[in-house]
């Protein structure tokens, strides 16, 4: 019995880890390219969930709604970047942070205005469960883990095997040289923001079968994404994956043994890692 619940919690932990990963890789990627840490990334996550709800009630097709919502959120992200955030690239860091924080406040109220403050649940998708070791496991958790791994694989291909990825890498490693050789940074900033926001929206959409959408969901996830990215090293994609796993699993397993501390666990893990390695697991400097 004890062992089964351990496995169960491990599965829960892994699937939440994948959610953290999908969202925080978007955050850390846009940071790596633009050097702006985007508070509004959590709002994009929230928008992803609400857009999916809206599209689902129109089409009745979950997969279609998820893809559509993520693309929409990606577009919102580009609009924010082109319309506002890009003007902060040369400003001191505090102003960048506070600018995106201002966006958070705006988006939260916009969502409240259109959808209200009451959490909105997704109608059951009927995905069902599988029976293993005498216990039912939600099938959706397995889907999430698969999607998370697939995203990692596609990101790897995108960044390492495409011309776009090559230009992104060139710009990150040497901005002067990259722009001197004809790379247009504006296009890369915008596309990077599209990708990052798309991932945030996707994360929000995929959170729906697990938890309800609410105006506070963005705040919650952005703090977790911050923890994941700081822990893994800001701008480090591999670090985001590893620390998502650590946080997700620590939360899942921790709930079993230290139920009282669940809310503090991610922060404790981060504090412990920062004591040992202040620059994060894969961080430099």
């Amino acid at each position: 019995m004890r062992f089964e619940s351990l496995i169960f919690q491990l599965l829960v932990g892994l699937s939440t880890a994948m959610l953290y990963w999908i969202v925080s890789v978007g955050l850390t990627f846009t940071f790596g390219v633009t050097r702006v840490l985007n508070f509004a990334h959590g709002s994009f996550y929230m928008l992803g969930a609400y857009f999916t709800l809206a599209l689902h009630s129109l089409t009745g097709n979950f997969v279609l709604s998820v893809v559509g919502a993520s693309l929409l959120v990606g577009t919102v992200g580009v609009l924010c970047e082109r319309g506002l955030i890009r003007f902060s690239y040369l400003l001191p860091v505090p102003f960048q942070l506070v600018l995106t924080f201002g966006l958070v406040l705006v988006f939260e109220d916009v969502v409240r205005f259109f959808w209200g403050t009451v959490p909105k649940m997704m109608p059951s998708l009927g995905i069902g469960t599988v029976k293993m070791m005498g216990r039912r496991f939600p099938l959706f958790s397995f889907y999430l883990i698969a999607i998370g791994c697939l995203i990692g694989f596609f990101l790897y291909l995108l960044i390492n095997r495409t011309k776009w990825g090559m230009m992104i890498r060139a710009m990150i490693s040497d901005y002067e040289l990259a722009t001197a050789t004809g790379i247009n940074p504006e296009v890369l900033y915008a596309t990077a923001f599209f990708l990052g926001s798309f991932l945030a929206g996707l994360g929000g959409a995929l959170s729906l079968p697990i938890s309800a959408a609410s105006p506070g969901m963005g705040e919650h996830i952005i703090i977790y994404s911050f923890i994941v990215t700081v822990m893994g090293g800001l701008g480090n994609i591999k670090g985001a994956f590893v620390s998502s796993l650590i946080i997700g699993v620590a939360e899942g397993i921790g709930a079993l043994y230290f139920a009282d501390l669940t809310m503090a666990i991610p922060y404790l893990v981060l504090a412990a890692i920062l004591v040992v390695k202040p620059e994060g697991i894969f961080g430099e400097v």
């Binding site: 505090p94 942070l97 703090i223 911050f226 700081v230 501390l261 669940t262 922060y267 504090a271 920062l274």
Partner: peptide, 25 residues
């Protein structure tokens, strides 16, 4: 030990650590 963004993030995380304790204790 950190500056700029890292400093902001670490202070944020530490304050939320306390929040997590307050909510559950």
């Amino acid at each position: 030990r950190h500056k700029e963004i890292h400093f902001a993030m670490v202070t944020l995380a530490l304050s939320m650590l306390f929040w997590g304790i307050v909510m559950k204790w």
